[in-house]
Amino acid sequence: MFNKLIELYTKGDLAQLSSCILHSSSWKQHDFTAYGHMQIESQWLNSLEQFGFLQLKNKQTVKSEKLSALYFELATNSVNKPISLSFFFEHNQTHIKKLHCIVDSLASTQSEYQDVSQLMGQLPAVDPLQLSQFDHQLHPQSYHATPSDFCDLPENTEALINQWWNIWQEKQFADFELIYDAKSKINIAGLGNSKGNKSLRAFHINMHNRINRSYCQIENICYDSQQNTAAIQWQIEGDYLFNEDIKRIRVPVLSFITIKDNVIVQEQLQIDWLSLCKRFQLTYPVI
């Protein structure tokens, strides 16, 4: 399925991937959920128009029995900054039932020399979403999802991924130094590539300082024991502060982690910034 997904965007091979789509399959991209062949194919054609036919530059796969995830970067030789796409999907080895795609939409504006507002106008209308205020505090006797709640992980990996989650959920910044390799390759949507965890740490602090009463929730985890890679589907929700105005927002995130010698050597953090702006009427940059 990984190749079929890649060949959709590099060659425009709709037929191969169509064979994996059911009448009841759903494909969420740019915060809009397409259902069934007609809507999903329409979504693909929009992407091909938006990105063009680019070449594969880099990819990371995370494969498990029922869930899989794929991250790849596309570019032409003349473009410096690649476009990254990430997919997290439920499958039965033959068909895809439910897929969430996060596109680094900001990078696609840079590659096509479009401005942000022009691309936002081209994105589909987002699904209706009503957010409710809730108690975001980690009370001593309240229950909050941790990576161990989702799948069986090897002992060392479990401890590492739990620590990774603590950085986000409990804002335990000291763990950055413990769990990342000093030369780890980091890619943050909209901010690009860097080495070491400093860019990620700065991003994290900025994010939480702009989103009051923030709460992080894991949706699902896919772990590939052969490659020691994990994909985590999660979200940040809270009160976004902008010009003394408060807006309740929810930010969908996909994180891809590669582990070697019990430290993180590579991480991609994917957020579709322009869909977020479109959904909540925010202006870019959000943080």
């Binding site: 209706p128 009503q130 409710s132 809730f134 709640d149 929730q217 949706e219």
Partner: peptide, 27 residues
């Protein structure tokens, strides 16, 4: 489950206990 998905009318979409709690209390 701590990461249960919860869909209620009008686009009330929640994941996990905290969001579900908020959604039910507000409704």
């Amino acid at each position: 489950h701590v990461a249960a998905s919860h869909q209620w009318p009008g686009g009330r979409q929640s994941t996990g206990l905290a969001q579900i709690s908020g959604s039910l209390i507000q409704w």
